[in-house]
Amino acid sequence: MPDQSMSFQSLRLLVVDDDADTRILLTFLFELEGAEVIAAASANEALKIMSSFKPDILISDICLPDEDGYSLLLKVKNLEANRGRKIPAIALTASILENDRKRALLAGYDIYQCKPIDLDELTSMVATLTGTEQYV
């Protein structure tokens, strides 16, 4: 079986998390792999960024200070639909409750990832959702 590798060259990510350490870690991780990453600390900041930045994927915390990740995702999905695009999204949260996972998936998140973040698993999820998996 071929080995799976990932190439994030030219991939654009929007990371939204109110925790500065998480934003720094995810930005560093994906930039190291060649992606262009913009990080936001709130839903409002993320929506402002979306006016000029068109990400290939959204990675967002659910618990944000001004409005939650569910509301953010709805606005992002509507904005992207108006642009004729569909953006995949990964929910990040500290909650491990099954009802929270179901709510996130029903809200439109493609994947629900509990914190602490498993970086290998997260990069694999991003590769799968964006089609950046390569087999060598």
Score class of each variant (00 low, 15 high):
86 K>L: 09
42 S>M: 10
58 L>Q: 03
56 D>V: 04
77 K>P: 01
56 D>A: 08
129 L>I: 11
127 A>F: 07
18 D>N: 14
8 F>T: 02
83 R>P: 00
23 R>K: 04
8 F>C: 04
114 C>K: 13
97 L>Y: 15
22 T>P: 01
131 G>P: 06
90 I>G: 00
9 Q>G: 00
101 R>P: 05
133 E>A: 13
21 D>M: 06
81 A>Y: 06
27 T>W: 00
3 D>C: 07
76 V>T: 11
104 A>Q: 04
1 M>E: 10
124 S>H: 15
112 Y>E: 05
53 F>C: 03
95 S>V: 02
91 A>L: 10
6 M>A: 09
69 G>T: 01
91 A>Y: 06
17 D>L: 07
21 D>F: 02
12 R>V: 05
104 A>S: 10
46 A>N: 07
91 A>G: 05
11 L>G: 05
4 Q>C: 08
128 T>H: 08
33 E>F: 11
14 L>C: 01
46 A>R: 01
18 D>S: 12
46 A>P: 05
91 A>P: 05
31 E>S: 04
133 E>Y: 12
39 A>W: 07
87 I>W: 02
101 R>T: 08
9 Q>N: 09
121 E>L: 11
113 Q>H: 09
28 F>Y: 13
111 I>L: 15
83 R>A: 14
26 L>G: 01
63 C>V: 12
83 R>E: 10
13 L>G: 03
105 L>D: 05
73 L>Y: 02
50 M>Y: 07
107 A>Y: 08
68 D>N: 13
56 D>I: 06
106 L>T: 10
122 L>N: 09
126 V>R: 00
78 N>W: 06
31 E>N: 10
85 R>S: 09
83 R>L: 14
106 L>M: 11
112 Y>G: 04
